[in-house]
Design a protein around this nucleic acid. Structure first.
Lengths: 162, 162
DNA sequence: CCCCCTGTCCTATTGTCATAAGACAACACT
DNA sequence: AGTGTTGTCTTATGACAATAGGACAGGGGG
């Protein structure tokens, strides 16, 4: 039972490997939160070309928002060339934003978890950690002025970790 | 009498120890960005009770925004009991949100900087780092459900990168 | 073929954000 | 007392976000 169309590859996930969440306190528009979450997943390799995004009506049901809001988010992602919507089938990933190999990313993730545990132990709560990270992240890239140790230029959107 | 503890000297800073910044791409309303920045500074100890915030008209001048927007931010902070506005004088910090002693926070900051450098070297750009941090931060507190693990002191430096 | 599912589009309405321009009230200093 | 500074408030206007409700178009399976 193959799900994939006659395309060159197969899917593997009928249900989406991503689950949207909303943070009403962030102040970020709903449609932008959806956009950011897809972009984040693309950067971290959680989503790859061919993967299917949640169906519009599913997102509507799970988040209790308006179809137009989801549509606006998907439209924005499609404009960027990241996804494509196919009526009757669903919405699918086209490109990737991943920059780092999986193993390296796993290492970074693990050490970051260690730091988080340490921050938690020190008494910082989620807001405090977010504040500290946001502060250092800003300082870090302010000091660099855009020049990374590697190469790479991208000045897309930035998302406050708050 | 005014609220100032001492009456002759309490200053030390005519100019505020905080400087507002705006990120138009974040989607966060301007007035909320100001609110968040003050709260962050309070959590990290950059601002303490008695400190003076930038004058409304100064913020207006430096950020090129409307006085009403700054006023809305300050009003929100005043409602929360964090600051107080005194006509003719300025706006001042009332409470603190700091949760961690300075030395511990400094340690956390240092190891975080190390991690950031490592992530940068690995090829992650600002957006990628923000994505990774946001992802792990969410996972971390999702797993805890709100219960912190603070018991002992943190002594081990986060792995790698000194 | 027909029906259902999918994404997409339309109009209208409501609420919030940000702006402009001006006025007022409390305080410090001369 | 008078002047200038500072925070606060009012009114009106334009833009955007999100909603409701309905309609249309492409694709697949019975």
């Amino acid at each position: 039972m193959t799900i994939g169309q006659g395309d060159s590859e197969q899917v593997g996930f009928q249900v989406s490997p991503i689950e949207f969440r909303l943070d009403p306190a962030s102040g970020v528009p709903t449609y932008l939160q959806l956009v950011h979450q897809v972009e984040h997943a693309l950067r971290l390799g959680y989503l790859k070309p061919g993967d299917q995004l949640p169906k519009v009506r599913d997102v509507v049901a799970s988040l209790a928002i308006n179809p137009n809001t989801v549509s606006k988010a998907y439209r924005e992602l499609e404009t960027k060339g990241l996804i494509v919507g196919r009526p009757g089938q669903g919405t699918f990933i086209l490109a990737t934003l991943s920059q780092v190999a999986l193993p390296e990313l796993t290492g970074l993730r693990r050490s970051l978890r260690g730091w988080l545990a340490k921050a938690d132990t020190a008494g910082l709560d989620e807001s405090g950690i977010a504040a500290l990270v946001a502060s250092e992240l800003r300082d870090f890239y302010e000091r660099l002025g855009g020049s990374s140790t590697r190469s790479g230029a991208a000045e897309d959107e930035t998302e406050g970790v708050a």
